[in-house]
């Protein structure tokens, strides 16, 4: 080990994108949000965007802390309003690359309506949703993504409401790029985020994450590794499956992959086209 001591430890390549004075972050040991952030930063580095032209918007929750840790222009919005803020940012300054990085409770529960409307308008933003199956920051209450029969602090006998199928929701609302990976699939996740960043239009990446402190502890995934090993054994990679077949159940196999990659005019393109045509017709 004397070799390692003699050489000074070089700087981790992700550090230039992080506010190092705020690290270590608040996420629990074994949490998957750090892995998701790590993949996002590496994808951003590979994409080669100018850091001044990238904005990260987050909502509230564990994943909502991402905006505070990245060394980019970032905004920590109120609960559920990350996508409206990102929409405004994009319309005011179309040059910017907008990334919404938030959790399932923020994007799909309270911000669900904004999510489907941004997808329907095909706003040119990238949405990365870290799905940990519960409201982790407030104590592990069940949410719209909790699978049936999973235990949470407010569902001690198991949840009984059908969960949202996020890729199906995004696809049917009108997203142009939809992918889902677990925190085990780091390389694929990084590649998907890179593709989503380069895609023009509403691109959506769902990252299924473990939550060892709240969700995992109540559902026999006693630590992060146990849950990741479970992801490893029970994930099936499928490209372009039928959307209704990719529902997430409790301890059933998880279908991951790139589900959709199509072209559709974005909101700004459609608006500019329309006004251009009207101007030509009126001779203005």
């Amino acid at each position: 080990m004397s070799v390692a001591v003699s050489n000074p430890i070089p700087v981790n390549p992700v550090e230039k994108y992080l506010r190092m004075e705020r690290i270590p972050h608040i996420w629990c040991p074994g949490c998957g949000i750090g892995t998701a952030l790590n993949a996002f930063i590496r994808a951003l580095d590979e994409a080669g965007f100018e850091p001044d032209k990238v904005c990260v918007v987050s909502g509230i929750g564990c994943t909502g802390r991402v905006a505070g840790y990245v060394n980019l222009d970032s905004f920590h919005t109120t609960h559920g309003r990350a996508i409206p803020f990102a929409t405004g940012l994009k319309l005011a300054n179309p040059e910017l690359k907008i990334v919404v990085f938030s959790g399932d409770g923020d994007l799909i529960a309270i911000g669900g309506n904004h999510f489907i409307h941004a997808a329907q308008k095909n706003m040119d933003i990238t949405v990365i949703c870290v799905n940990n199956f519960n409201y982790a920051m407030t104590g592990g209450q069940y949410g719209p993504t909790t699978p049936i029969s999973a235990q949470t602090s407010t569902a001690p006998w198991g949840s009984y409401q059908a969960p949202f199928n996020l890729p199906k929701l995004a696809e049917s609302a009108g997203a142009v790029y939809v992918a889902r990976w677990t925190t085990y699939h780091v390389r694929q996740m990084k590649k998907s985020i890179l593709e989503a960043l380069r895609k023009k239009g509403f691109s959506f990446v769902e990252i299924i994450s473990q939550c060892p402190t709240l969700y995992g502890r109540r559902n026999k995934f006693r630590d992060g590794i146990t849950h990741m090993e479970w992801f490893k054994e029970h994930s099936v990679i499928k490209d372009h499956p039928i959307p209704s077949d990719i529902n997430l159940g409790f301890r059933t196999e998880t279908i991951v992959g790139k589900f959709l990659d199509i072209e559709r005019p974005t909101y700004l393109d459609a608006m500019n086209d329309r006004y251009q045509r009207i101007r030509e017709e009126k001779g203005v």
Partner: peptide, 10 residues
């Protein structure tokens, strides 16, 4: 380095 949630190893 890709798995580490705390950017502590690469």
């Amino acid at each position: 380095g890709l798995y580490c949630p705390d950017f502590a190893i690469f």
